[in-house]
Design a protein around this nucleic acid. Structure first.
Length: 202
DNA sequence: CGGTTTTGACCAGCGC
DNA sequence: GCGCTGGTCAAAACCG
């Protein structure tokens, strides 16, 4: 059901502001990777490799996990298409950044898949099941909060993520993932039973 | 002592 | 060409 609406809107979207809408789509994701898994299952298998963004609304974030969330989903590559009327929003600051990155990546041949989560949280770094090492921090223009850069600690895994707080609402944390893990989450290593539930790589 | 974080320097892309 | 900006590097500091 959602799959249908996603695809129809995705194809039809040219000028809408934040892509296709599945407002208040409820789900019981407990981790960002599960959210992504859900996202992938909703999407057309042929487009599973596309960059995707996941905007989590009203999530209750404990110290380490998202208990529940509603979501607006949109393909990352289309986020910049209809910025016109919403240029002032935090969502579109993100979209503008995405558009800029798209340009950069278009020049460089390799374009890693990306998607982002926007969550309300006191903590900057969500426990998404993977281990990350911080490799940089940067103050981004027009924001009072620095952006942090992380890399997956696993050998040969080149996944990165950026973490920043929304200027308009510092309670909101934007986590952007880039690339796909070539290994299972650390939680799986600790608990082999969990691997059957989190059996995917992104 | 090994892994992680911090932070200033450096680099590449973009706009003017 | 130049300045601005975002992303990355790498040495030093920090921590368990």
């Amino acid at each position: 059901m959602y799959n249908q609406s996603l695809l129809e809107d995705q194809e039809g979207m040219v000028t809408s502001n934040v892509g296709f809408h599945t407002n208040n789509f409820s789900c019981g994701w407990t981790h960002p990777q599960l959210a992504f898994q859900q996202l992938k299952s909703l999407n057309n298998p042929s487009s599973m490799g596309e960059d995707l963004a996941c905007h989590l609304n009203g999530s209750q974030l404990g110290t380490s996990s998202i208990q529940r969330a509603s979501a607006i989903l949109w393909p990352w590559g289309e986020m910049g298409e209809g910025l016109g009327s919403k240029r002032q929003t935090g969502e579109n600051n993100l979209a503008i950044a995405a558009m800029k990155m798209k340009k950069v990546k278009a020049r460089r041949k390799v374009r890693e898949p990306r998607f982002c989560f926007k969550t309300m949280s006191d903590v900057d770094v969500l426990d998404d099941g993977y281990k990350w090492r911080k490799y940089g921090q940067k103050v981004v223009k027009n924001t009072q909060h620095p952006r942090s850069y992380y890399r997956c600690t696993q050998d040969n895994c080149r996944v990165k993520k950026r973490v920043e707080r929304l200027a308009e609402d510092p309670r909101m944390v934007i986590t952007t993932y880039e690339g796909r893990h070539i290994h299972s989450p650390w939680h799986d290593v600790d608990d082999s039973n969990a691997s059957s539930q989190l059996d995917f790589i992104w």
